[in-house]
Amino acid sequence: MANRFIVEADGGSRGNPGPAGYGAVVLDAVTGEALAEAAEYIGTATNNVAEYKGLIAGLEAARAIDPEAEIQVRMDSKLVVEQMSGRWKIKHPDMKPLAARAASVFPAGRVAYAWIPREKNKHADRLANEAMDAGKAGRPWEPSAAAAAPSVPVAEPLPEPKAAPVGWAAPADLGTPTTFVLLRHGETALTPEKRFSGSGGTDPELSPAGRRQAEAVAAALAARGTVQAVVSSPMRRCRETAEIVAARLGLDVRVEDGLREADFGTWEGLTFAEVRERFPEDLDAWLASSKAAPTGGGESFAAVARRVALSRDKLLARHAGRTVLLVTHVTPVKTLVRLALGAPPESLFRMELAAASLSAVAYYADGNASLRLLNDTGHLR
């Protein structure tokens, strides 16, 4: 599945024409994380020229990250949005070459345009004004230390869908949802000690207690008789759990790399207290921001969310209308739940998820999702 980016762009001119500049930001469409910023003072120009140059800069910044990405452009310029969407003709001679250049950055089928009100385009507007201020002061624009909050909600799809009813008001003709039953693997030797155990560590096997937990899950799921496919993280503890369950259900196990646990860098194998003692500043940063990664080249929660969302979309396409058991880890399960609820990244720290617990999310044809179960451990009693 291709990466999905939001490009928000703006341009301004103090005089129209007058001293002008543009700003653009590339956002991850799943997490809302700002991936790149661009801004420049362009001398004397009109608002429209500045807006088009902001669009071009944003598209080129997105292409530099991933030339195969799918893009939604969001601008408060009705003119640019309508012209680039093909609904309005481009008559002004200054606009034609700029529009042609913008159209050449990505194939047309991978870019969608949407108008947003100015108050929803604050990030790009700020960058454009920073660029104009820098030009007035005779210096080049430089990124500011503080990043403004992105204006796209977490997990908003591309392109922007029509409003769909949810909950009790949902229509009855959406068909059978695709249901992911989310199983955290059974215990390893590290689990009772509450040590960081991600994809960058020793890849431990199930402990005897963990194997008993997997057998209990297998019995419970066999009694329900609803699971139609089993997909596992590549980590050993998940594959062992999945194989025990799949054998009881008479199914094969398919491995999906995107379901692996986060890489916790040099924190692997340490307890929270040990990390607090050795890396206090890094731990505080990690707890405060989903963009912060564990010490030593670990993986941020924002990065995990991107790959988990890609795996989710791939599995939804492959298993439409079916019930699929995903055997994975704490972070991927919490991430799938968070994205289904549209909850903020800090919600990951507010969910309890026991070893061998079951959760479930149903995905509907209109793009809505429903959390049906969280941290069920009744089968382990």
Rank of each mutant, 00 (worst) to 15 (best):
K91P: 11
E299F: 12
A64K: 10
A99Y: 04
A216Y: 15
P150T: 02
L316W: 06
G11C: 05
A320C: 03
R4K: 15
A247C: 15
P192L: 07
L183D: 02
W286L: 11
A128L: 01
A148E: 08
K122A: 07
S300Y: 11
S144A: 14
T178C: 10
E156C: 13
A39M: 03
G250K: 01
R372C: 09
E156Q: 13
S199L: 04
A343G: 09
A360Q: 02
R318N: 03
T176Y: 09
H379W: 12
R278C: 00
L35C: 10
A146S: 11
N129W: 01
A102C: 09
A172C: 02
E346C: 07
D173A: 05
L59E: 06
A62P: 11
D76F: 02
A343H: 15
A369N: 08
V333S: 08
A223M: 08
E37N: 03
V166R: 05
A39W: 05
A360H: 07
K91Y: 08
G11W: 02
L336T: 02
P17L: 01
T46I: 06
W88K: 03
F301V: 11
E60D: 04
G138E: 12
T331D: 15
W88T: 00
F272D: 06
I244M: 12
S290V: 14
W267H: 01
V73L: 07
L371T: 04
M235Y: 08
Y52H: 02
C238V: 01
E130N: 05
A9S: 15
R101G: 06
A242V: 09
D203K: 03
F264C: 01
N129R: 03
P294G: 03
A29P: 12
D173C: 11
L127N: 00
D94Y: 06
G12F: 00
V217L: 14
P153V: 01
A128N: 00
G201E: 01
A114N: 08
G43V: 06
D263K: 05
E68C: 02
